[in-house]
């Protein structure tokens, strides 16, 4: 267990050090805007905000409402592409 956590930490560090994490984030952002994910979520945000009232909305509320939906709404193609890139990264660094 300890070893597993250590390993994850190591991989994360690698991701950040190499800049791959930033690249993946940027890729994901672009893809999600492209496929309309962002607009969908924004529309959902509007509903949430109207429901809660403009003044009483907090970031926590939004995150709690938005994250599950956001996760579900990511298109399969985007998900697959991103996973593929992560796997490639892992494979490269596992072989080192």
């Amino acid at each position: 267990m300890n070893k597993d956590a250590q390993m994850r930490a190591t991989i994360n560090q690698k991701l950040i050090e190499t800049g791959e994490r930033e690249r993946l984030k940027e890729l994901l952002r672009a893809k999600l805007i492209e496929c309309g994910w962002k607009d969908q979520l924004k529309a959902h945000c509007k509903d949430v905000i109207k429901e809660k009232g403009l003044e009483h909305v907090t970031v926590d509320d939004l995150v709690a409402e938005i994250t599950p939906k956001g996760r579900a709404l990511v298109p399969d193609s985007v998900k697959k592409e991103l996973l593929q890139r992560i796997r490639t990264f892992l494979a490269q660094h596992a072989s080192l």
Partner: peptide, 19 residues
Amino acid sequence: EIYTELVEDACLGLCFEVH
């Protein structure tokens, strides 16, 4: 796990933006 993290990052970013 990494993928989920990334997606949650994106969601969080959007939440901040909207907020």
